[in-house]
Design a protein around this nucleic acid. Structure first.
Lengths: 232, 232
DNA sequence: TCTCGAACGAGAGCACCGCTCTCGCCGGAT
DNA sequence: ATCCGGCGAGAGCGGTGCTCTCGTTCGAGA
């Protein structure tokens, strides 16, 4: 049971992170100022250091929360009873919607690493939640017999995380499928990022339609397209 | 003919940008300090403002130069006499190599927008050079009869830039092809960025092999795979 | 050739930043 | 009741982007 002191400490910590999240949404990570956060919560800037050892630690907290938020959005968008392609597109759309609603937070997560590059390992589990959702869709499709992988591994190509997230060795899944899934994963965030950061201005007019088409193409790439067929 | 004054001004401007580029490569865009640049070139910080109105303008200069550098690398890697798939993979590899050699510069170009989001339109032509190279490969493949598009447009979906870069209406190219090309374009930079920013740590062991596989998949996606075939 | 004005470099200064240190204070555990 | 450890505030350090002012210098036009 937490003591009263621990409780108030947790409360103030939450208050600080909440103010920091507002700052982040307003001005972006680069301009997020610990002093401004302190002002917003009505403390001296030095007092904030009782709760976060440095500005980067505060950002790390926001990063983890951000990964959890986009991961939760992806999980909420997945309807396990739907067809794999619909599930895939729905999850992709949820990621994009979250990104458009929280552009600065998305940039913090998937854009350039912020400080002298230090992504602590605390962020890894939270960061993989979207991948886990997409991997589960793929696994369900494999169990339903939609995928044609032969279970083969290509030694030294992929890491354990990919195998764990994208389905254990089993019918329908092999490293070729996993590679395509990873490419689609990269393509999803590449597309969202390019749209968000203005890299597609002039080339895409109807971003909604384009993104729907893109996710459909990616679904086909990973082998859960409408007909479930694919040339090898 | 430039006057002597203009010449020395151009020289000093180049000296400043060169120092800034070194700073950028060392510490990244977020930590790039105009005062440090001034120290490196031996001026007072205020004197630098004679040449660049603000730190962001200095960054904009670096952004344009960066786009030109990666664009030049892509152009140099394209051998118009090779097969489309080989050309595609070579250009993608050149982009990745440039990114790995200049990670901070790549992050500045394709990562989060730096300041209060202001990408001047000066950057657009330089930014499109890689896309132009890839589009030329696609156009050549279309002229060689490898693509199966029917020239159709889907009104309101894509912008003029996409049509111009990815090939005018003609045999083999239609908006469906262009969509796939744009997806592959996003996937290329998404993959490179994810590798560079550590988002694939744990999932990919042999990044070289994975990237080669990824570009091959993307070549197939745009329709210039080994056999030139594709299910529609 | 001389002159005058524009461009230039330097310095001081403003407001802000991250971070540290010290100093009182207050409340809960002993 | 008494410590003492966590806490908040303030001052301060070195750094930042940017502005203003003040001499100087250099070159184009008379």
């Amino acid at each position: 049971m937490p003591t009263a002191r621990e409780r108030v400490r947790a409360e103030i910590t939450a208050e600080i992170t909440e103010a920091a999240r507002r700052q982040l949404a307003e001005v972006g990570a680069a301009a997020l100022s610990l002093r401004a956060v302190a002002r917003e919560v009505g403390m001296a800037s030095s007092a904030v250091y009782r709760y976060f050892p440095s500005r980067d630690d505060l950002l790390t907290r926001l990063i983890i929360d951000g990964y959890d938020a986009v991961g939760a959005a992806a999980e909420a968008a997945d309807d396990p009873t739907a067809a794999p392609e619909q599930r895939w597109s729905a999850v992709c759309a949820a990621v994009r919607d979250w990104a458009r609603a929280n552009p600065h937070e998305y940039a913090l997560l998937y854009g350039s690493p912020v400080p002298g590059y230090a992504a602590p390992r605390d962020t890894v589990p939270a960061a993989s939640r979207v991948g886990v959702v997409l991997g589960r869709i793929l696994g369900d499709a494999a169990r339903a017999g939609l995928l044609t992988g032969d279970g083969g591994r290509e030694p030294g190509l992929l890491g354990d995380a990919a195998v764990e997230i994208l389905g254990q060795d089993g019918p329908g899944i092999d490293d070729a499928v996993r590679v395509r899934a990873l490419v689609a994963y990269c393509a999803l965030f590449g597309t969202v990022g390019f749209e968000l950061f203005g890299q597609l201005v002039g080339s895409v007019e109807d971003a909604d339609r384009f993104f729907a088409r893109a996710t459909a193409e990616l679904a086909q790439l990973v082998g859960i397209g409408p007909a479930g067929v694919r040339t090898g």
